[in-house]
């Protein structure tokens, strides 16, 4: 039951993009086509889960016993950067098809603040190891969901007649605002 609450809260109520404003750059940058949005969502799911698992262990089994909590930011970002590189190398060797699908998105993920953000939020939220991993997966799904819906809207937006001054980025932000407004309807269901 607790797990279900974590999932619903993270995917719908506190959606990572539309309510917490993490991962806005890929949200605006790679949401022009549904195909790329799905690829990016998959890559984020993969990296976010792994990164949260590893940073959780570092925080509780390395930093805390030695009283080095102030090194959290530095160690987390280094671990995430190294992890992304490692995932890229391993994936290239083990599953070239998956690498083809996710490859171009992996380097972008290091600077995706959603990954570091969720790693820190997991620590701040005092989750257990299982709870933390579920939280990371749910947030990644929430990210993918927002990205895919937004990409779907933007594909249709290309065919619309938008006032000249609002074309391109400005109208995308207005659409994202309306989407955020829709997601606000989920608040209160848990």
């Amino acid at each position: 039951m607790e797990i279900l609450t974590i999932i619903i809260l993270a995917v719908f109520v506190n959606n990572i993009v539309l309510a917490q404003f993490l991962g806005i750059c890929p949200f605006i940058g790679v949401s022009k086509k549904i195909d790329t949005a799905v690829g990016m969502g998959g890559a984020v799911l993969f990296v976010m889960t792994l990164a949260t698992l590893v940073t959780y262990m570092i925080r509780y089994y390395v930093l805390q016993p030695y009283g080095l909590e102030f090194l959290q930011t530095i160690s987390f970002i280094l671990v995430i950067a190294a992890l992304v590189q490692m995932v890229e190398i391993i994936l290239k060797k083990l599953s070239p098809t998956l690498f083809q699908a996710l490859g171009i998105f992996l380097p972008l993920i290091t600077t995706n603040c959603a990954v570091l953000g969720v790693a820190i939020l997991t620590i701040n939220g005092n989750y257990s190891l299982v709870g933390g991993v579920v939280y990371a997966i749910a947030n990644a799904i929430g990210f993918g969901l927002a990205l895919i819906i937004f990409a779907g809207i933007r594909e249709h937006l290309d065919l619309m007649e938008v006032p000249k001054g609002m074309r391109g980025v400005p109208i995308s932000f207005i659409v994202a605002g309306i989407l955020a407004l829709a997601f606000m309807g989920f608040s209160g269901i848990v």
């Binding site: 400005p170 109208i171 207005i174 309306i178 407004l181």
Partner: peptide, 22 residues
Amino acid sequence: LVFVLAPGAFIGLGYLISIMNR
């Protein structure tokens, strides 16, 4: 009130970018 909530951030920035482009 919507402007201090999440949607207002997107909408406000959208209009500001449009004005700044101009």
